[in-house]
Design a protein around this nucleic acid. Sequence first.
RNA 1: GACCUCUUCGUCCAGCGGUUAGGACACGGCACUUUCACUGCUGUAACACGGGUUCGAUUCCCGUAGAGGUCGCCA
Length: 442
Amino acid sequence: MSDPVRVRFAPSPTGYLHVGGARTALFNWLYVKRHGGTLVLRIEDTDAARNTPEALAAILDGLRWLGISWDEGPEVGGNYGPYFQSQRNDIYDRYLQKLQDTGHVYEDGGSIRFRSPKVPVTVHDQVCGDITIDRSHEPDMTLRRPDGSYIFHFVNVVDDIEMAITHVIRGEDHLMNTPKHIELFQALGAPIPVYAHIPLFQNADGTKMSKRDQGASVVSYQDNAFLPAAVVNYLCLLGWSPKDDREKLTVEEVVALFDWDHINRSPSKFDYNKCLWLNSQYLAELDEAEFLRLATNWSNEHVPALAAQANEALTAALLLCKPKLKQLPELAEHLTMIFDDEAPLEETGRTKVAAQPNGQGNLAILTSHLKAVTDWTADHIQAAIQAAAGEAKVKPGAMMFPLRLLLTGAGHGVDLLPALVLVGQDAVLRRIDQRLRLIFPD
RNA sequence: GACCUCUUCGUCCAGCGGUUAGGACACGGCACUUUCACUGCUGUAACACGGGUUCGAUUCCCGUAGAGGUCGCCA
């Protein structure tokens, strides 16, 4: 029997949950699920000045939203707590004493430094391979500040020892820290965990992703009502591959395949567009009830004006929108086109229709046919359009674009016939009349 | 500047000592749809450069260039 697998994700609650951090958490989680083990969530909040409860809440909330659950840590407890570094000072004191007793540290202007062995250190990294780093000419690292507070490297290693961590999966930005950490493990006589450093994300233009960049913050996906499964799927595809042609995979499928040799070594640029595409794929396969639940929630929250709409009308409209959506927020635009008589008229469409030969006359013919419909159903409306086209001597298809524009103000959108039915004859004729005057002012 | 890592279509990801170098996003075309989309089919598009090793290198080695990371009493 080998030791039980214990991996940890150790965020610092200083800002927000970065999508790169989320991916690191995800890979830790995937590893645990793949090999069986325990995921420890440890909060590295030693820098009191920069930590906020809001940031912590955002991190926990973001992880939960993505479905990344932890077995030990904040809110769930565990046998290796406390899981906040700010509460572990006595442990750090004890470990520092060990180093003092064995002569590994020395005092320097009130701070405590580690006496580095000054020999090259080889990191056996599961992703990057063996990397030997010689930092013998660099200054000794500080472990404790004059005010008694501890430095990241020290607490990080002490906690990994104390929490019996066996695998460290973290961003490549930590690769050059690893020799320092290995020196500490050795000085403390503790086994060195298995390391895996995973490549970082970049913006599409190759620059570093920071908070304000599109897609950088997990909250932005929550705010835009992405489906977590889609985001997780996309995150898995960045830097990892099933090694076949699959793009859309469930987490279960990823778990079954997750391993080091599937992880890429080069940094990847974040393609928000592809993430959006995956979201549309997941959205499309939602069943009606689930879609309506999500869509109704979203529209109630973001388009409160629709509260006045009858439930059946709203439901019908939402279902009409479903096949068009890449993401839920597009609902706002579609619903406005359906329900708002005064939705703005698209300029490019206006110009196009205004320029059509005989446009005004043809649309007058169409209007009169629509007016004459006595039973306002899709079949009868279609017949009316056909008849109007015949009389105007144009193809029925040529009637569709102008009609769409007159109905919704836009040249694209939901399926036209059902939309006409939904809006109702009176409102349709009213809108046609209004917008016709905008298009042909004379 | 020093050290570490990386380099296949615009992007993500496969691949391999001999392939018409494959898939996906994006983009274009066609079909379907009397509309908008979806979908299907299809097209454009890549092995950073220079040396080796080899019968043969995109694939292995070395160098160059470019990119990223790290060089804190931040985490």
